[in-house]
Design a protein around this nucleic acid. Structure first.
Lengths: 230, 230
DNA sequence: CACCGATTTGAACCTACTTTCAATAATGAG
DNA sequence: CTCATTATTGAAAGTAGGTTCAAATCGGTG
């Protein structure tokens, strides 16, 4: 494969060559550093150290530092979206919107906190990257936001949304609560399960009151998932 | 006043000299830039432009770029804390904890979104500054967090906190919802009042259910403030 | 082995800043 | 007005990266 000036090596789908694995190592390293040090603190030499190569080797795979960072952040949101969507798709047909939102919240938190440096990097740096990178990120953010917009719209349709809430503000506030966990959560101090449980309670009760939810469950002859029934 | 190598000009309390006002202009300019461009994007030349001086003049008042940024962020949290505390102090004796928390949430949002570049700067950059700055910030953050810790503890004492919530997680999740607004709020699109109303509803219902709150109000022979009574 | 493209590197380069400094201008007290 | 101090500047260093590049290495193929 020729080394084009403008293209460098491209990620091919099922490629398992040594080269593809090196590229992967660089991306992993960049996600690791970026999620911890932020955009400004991410030095190519640190990424290179973590990936066990020399800094210039990065340029064999990526155009520039920003190109690398954009790749990390783009993957981060994409994975999050796929993960959350998968969890939602696995739910039984007819699951009520509030239960689905609780599942989405759990998936979001688990992915952000426990699984992916890429996702943490994408979230924590959303507001601090230069415009060039930001631009492409906005598309991904919109796609992910759309999942939540639909969830809340469904809640509204099912009569499960408190009428005093502005749907857009409510969505952004709740996503903010989830996103901000990356700033404070410490696995040594707070078990993930504790945060998860509290977050789900907050999401549920913010959006809908118990009485309404219970009435809805009875009407449909099927109890809501999780705590909503207690 | 001698120009000490390690100290430079210090902020004196009620100083209104030209010098003090220049220092203030620099701080204002830095807050402006920092809140919009982030830690990495804040260039001394931009700060200088905004303050209508030349970049080296900054060094007459501050040790270094980081010193300036630390000053901005420190002031940001301090002001926020004072503002929120003042609003709380102005409430009538005996106001229930949930109403107080709603007032705190409103004060927090108004300050963050509408009033202070310093506070926006402090919040948005909390997680991306180098360790040296971070360290001092943690003290301020702890002080502010303490206000909220006490509010939630009071709610618990008054029997107004849902038992399934972990108090610490709940506090951080709700503060996260408020803090994250700086990332998405757009005054052109969403009136502040809309966000405010939704945030207050979320805070209230997350922490306590309507029935409990109403019972509490009746018991004390005084209706709770705001929406809680409707 | 001898060759060739793919990969990696060490050393240098370049740029965009922060920071220093000696010189100059403003300010205010006597 | 004079002078000492405070404040500000223009020009020049200094510096910490990102980036380039020619050379070295690697890994497979004939």
């Amino acid at each position: 494969m020729a080394k084009a000036v403008a293209a460098r090596r491209r990620p091919t789908d099922g490629d398992d060559s040594k080269s593809a694995r090196t590229r992967e190592r660089i991306l992993d390293a960049a996600a690791y550093v970026l999620s911890r040090k932020g955009y400004s603190g991410t030095r190519l030499t640190d990424v290179a150290d973590k990936a066990e190569i020399q800094a210039p080797a990065i340029y064999y795979y990526f155009e520039s530092r920003d190109d690398l960072i954009e790749a990390v952040m783009s993957v981060g949101l994409e994975h999050m979206r796929e993960h959350v969507q998968a969890q939602l798709d696995a739910l039984p047909k007819g699951t009520d919107a509030i239960s689905r939102i609780k599942v989405a919240a759990e998936a979001h938190l688990r992915y952000e906190l426990g699984i992916s440096d890429y996702t943490t990097a994408a979230i924590r740096n959303a507001g601090q990257v230069p415009d060039a990178i930001r631009k492409h990120q906005l598309d991904e953010e919109a796609k992910y936001g759309e999942i939540w917009r639909l969830l809340i719209r469904d809640a509204e349709k099912e009569g499960l949304l408190r009428p005093e809430l502005d749907p857009f503000s409510a969505r952004m506030l709740l996503l903010g609560a989830l996103n901000w966990t990356a700033e404070w959560w410490n696995p040594k101090r707070d078990p993930l399960e504790t945060v998860l449980r509290t977050a789900q309670a907050i999401v549920e009760h913010s959006l809908c009151d118990d009485a309404t939810l219970k009435a809805h469950a009875k009407r449909r002859g099927r109890p809501a998932l999780g705590r909503a029934t207690s």
